[in-house]
Design a protein around this nucleic acid. Structure first.
Lengths: 161, 161
DNA sequence: CAAAATCTATTTGTATACTAATGAATTTTG
DNA sequence: CAAAATTCATTAGTATACAAATAGATTTTG
């Protein structure tokens, strides 16, 4: 027995006039059409594509490693800023990358507050081997769009950062 | 002392020819330009807007409650499917909503596997009071775009779900 | 009808994310 | 220069997310 349709309709007679008027407020608010909801679903799809192409790293781990290879090195907090992760988040990411030998950390001699983070040779190799898959991930994520649409989409999305 | 610039450049002479060739692979891969990275940042901005407008609920809790009010009622798993949450995730969300008295759950008499979920009066009231703020959230999220751009963006984003 | 397959909910484990609080180090400022 | 403010890293707590395993209920199928 299927259960696809709902037991009650949106304008069900659940009671008094007050509720009926409340329902009127909902009428043209449809969750599935809201930008946040659609963006969450698009993100989920992208994350699935990512996991299938680069199973060795999560997107955040890849981002941290990529930025580290771009920069050469950075303090933990700065790396977090450059990859849009707060201090608590980047700490966990770096901890896990270090545990796997992909990065090393040392106290910065010039500033005792800072933790100096650097990719290891192994980390750089892994990153290098992930760049091509990463390109495919971006491609596959945008695959439903034409070339023109992709440019337009990226332009618009960039404005919403 | 500022530390904004990196210690090493991207094409640093870190060693042999092999690595130099590896660097060539990175050259036109820039993390900040990838759709996944930009989408993550856009999501973060949206989540910040959401939290400022509806501090009482997380986006996922709101989604579950909204869909529940749309549907009238649903089994826990079906609600998860309709809000793009897997079984484990929707369970946690419903647990927290129930703990706050916003939804009730009962074993479905017709199907002993199913957990029947329904919004309470309090849950429906909270949802009704959140719809206007929710509209503003969608508006504010898309605020950097013109009216035309918004339509275009939503159209394109929808294709990436 | 009985076995196989599917569905539902739960649990465990891992990994983001963010808030808030803390303490140590450094920079700014009066 | 000393106090105030800021920065950095860590910790604790809460809330998604998803994978994988499990157990019970229901449906499908041979």
């Amino acid at each position: 027995m299927e259960w696809e349709t709902s037991y009650y309709t949106q304008q069900s007679d659940r009671g008094a006039m007050g509720e009926t008027r409340q329902n009127a407020v909902w009428q043209d608010y449809v969750l599935d059409e809201q930008v946040g909801f659609i963006m969450r679903r698009a993100s989920q799809r992208h994350l699935g594509i990512f996991a299938s192409r680069i199973p060795e790293l999560t997107p955040t781990q890849f981002a941290a490693l990529a930025k580290l290879c771009e920069l050469g090195a950075a303090s933990q907090n700065e790396l977090g800023r450059r990859t849009a992760m707060d201090a608590a988040t980047i700490k966990g990411v770096i901890d896990r990358l270090r545990r796997r030998g992909l990065v090393t950390t040392v106290k910065d001699a010039n500033d005792q507050r800072r933790l100096f983070v650097k990719a290891t040779a192994e980390g750089e190799e892994l990153y290098a081997s992930c760049v091509e898959p990463a390109r495919m991930i971006s491609d596959e994520t945008l695959a439903p769009l034409s070339e023109k649409e992709r440019l337009m989409f990226l332009q618009l999305l960039s404005k919403l950062q």
